[in-house]
Amino acid sequence: MKILVLISNVPDTTTKIRFKSDNTAFDDAGVQWIINPWDELALTRAVELKETGGVSLITVANVGNASTEPTLRKALAVGADDAIRIDVEARDAFEVATQLASVAKDYDLIMAGIEASDYNGSAVGGMLAELLDIASVSSVSGINIENGQLLFNREIDGGSQVLSVTTPVVAIVQKGIAKEPRIPAMRGIMMARKKELKVTAPVSAEDRTSFVRFELPPKKAACKMVAEDNAKELVRLLHEEAKVL
């Protein structure tokens, strides 16, 4: 079985978010980039499956310019066998899915994180399946291979569901897919240097989105302390200032 794990390159989750160009673009100056946490868990599960047998190849793919290569190298250090970077700046989910579709045809299982932690679009996995005209399963929280058969677990209301799926298939994975992201060992880091990172030219894709404006959430107001024996003042503040009573 050949697995393709989609890797989004996102700002570190502790990044202080700023915008530029009159609030129409993200200001990436000084930003630390990481593998999207959901994709990192997907990759971890893929590596676990390979270790238990039944997986012959794990490829990671990303749509982005050369600045995303350290993220792909980390994915190789964690255990992917090779990497593909489609050399174009990702503009929106449709473009990313279109680009990925051009390299995703030869895989049995395609794993996509449920969302990327930057734009939270939750769209690429489903779009990719449509473009490839193959099935997709959303909210997958477990993947196993039993006797060569691919089994997905899904959380449903009040329980869980086990699906037997045919390949090729896109699994849109979420919490539970792996316990915690795997930290690459020193040996993996050294081996990653020698693994293939293929850069491919983009296909033409329609630009379907334009950003009108970004806004930061309102600043948190200062915390007001109320003496423990002054419930009256607390009620007054909740009523008159916070207006929640």
Binding site: P70, R73, K74, A77, I183, P184, M186, I189, M190, A192, R193
Partner: peptide, 14 residues
């Protein structure tokens, strides 16, 4: 080097 950067990130994460 890219490896040294990754080693720093890895050990920090660990």
């Amino acid at each position: 080097s890219p490896e040294q950067i990754m080693i720093r990130e890895t050990v920090r994460e660990f």
